[in-house]
């Protein structure tokens, strides 16, 4: 059996008195999509930051594409990429200029050709020459995704990948991501508050609560196990406890 794209074991991260990640462990096999769910402060962004090498853990082991991210992250970084609404691209540079810079940073062969290809696939041709600062939120999301796909990553970390997209574009992006994963055997790790998106894209879901994995499994299994109809209801059940969800249903019945 091949090595998983992501293998996290006994991961802890403490910020002063706060334990942001409290002993989690999980794997993401190649060719699959996993989702990290959780409320604000649950530990999703901290976990993604550690996987990207932006943050050093207090304890634990992180292997990405077979490489130890604590000691050999530069062996893994050319093979991975990420997109997040919490970071940005230089606003004065055009879309093409930004993608060119990142193409060179990732050592992409045939940068111009790759940008043209992504512009077609993500429908960006109309604003390729426009400064990033003059794009709509939805256009920026597509540009961020294009940047994340420039180097044809084998591991793609996505934080709210369809934020600000209209339903039609969001659906096309999800389809694109599924095709990309299947065509390249890539692993996708998704942090999202859009439960319908997670249900559709993810083979496996980890629900984080106060830095711990409170439950995990395929979305369908979780829904059945909790006797709910959607993943959103499962999420609310775990986040608020059984009484909280009963209260919501009670309010809806009135």
């Amino acid at each position: 059996m091949s090595e998983p794209a992501v293998a996290v074991d006994g991961l802890y991260k403490r910020f002063g008195p706060v334990m942001a990640v409290d002993g989690i462990g999980f794997t993401v096999p190649a060719g699959t999509t996993a989702g990290l769910l959780g409320g604000n402060g649950a530990g999703k962004t901290t976990t993604l930051s550690i996987l990207l090498g932006l943050l050093l853990p207090t304890a634990g082991a992180v292997r990405v594409l077979g490489h130890d991210m604590l000691t050999r992250r530069f062996r893994a970084l050319p093979w991975m990429n990420f997109s997040s609404p919490y970071v940005d691209l230089p606003h004065r540079l055009s879309v093409r200029e930004n993608l060119t810079v990142y193409g060179h940073l990732y050592g992409v062969r045939g940068v111009r050709r790759r940008i043209t290809q992504l512009a077609e696939e993500l429908d960006m041709g109309a604003f390729l020459k426009r400064p990033v600062g003059r794009l709509s939120a939805g256009q920026k999301t597509r540009v961020a995704l294009a940047k994340a796909l420039l180097n044809r990553p084998r591991l793609l970390l996505l934080d709210e990948p369809t934020a600000s997209l209209d339903p039609d574009t969001a659906d096309r992006v999800r389809t694109y991501l599924e095709r990309y994963r299947d065509a390249h055997g890539a692993a996708l790790l998704l942090a999202s508050h859009n439960m319908a998106e997670v249900e559709r894209l993810c083979d496996d879901v980890k629900i984080l609560h106060q830095g711990r994995i409170s439950d995990e499994g395929p979305p369908g299994d979780l829904i059945r196990r909790y006797g709910r109809e959607t993943l959103e209801e499962v999420f609310l059940h775990i986040a608020r406890g059984r009484d909280g969800i009963a209260y919501i249903y009670d309010m809806e019945d009135r």
Binding site: F74, F82, V87
Partner: peptide, 8 residues
């Protein structure tokens, strides 16, 4: 900055 530091 984060985009730059997750590049190789």
């Amino acid at each position: 900055l984060a985009q730059i530091f997750v590049a190789p």
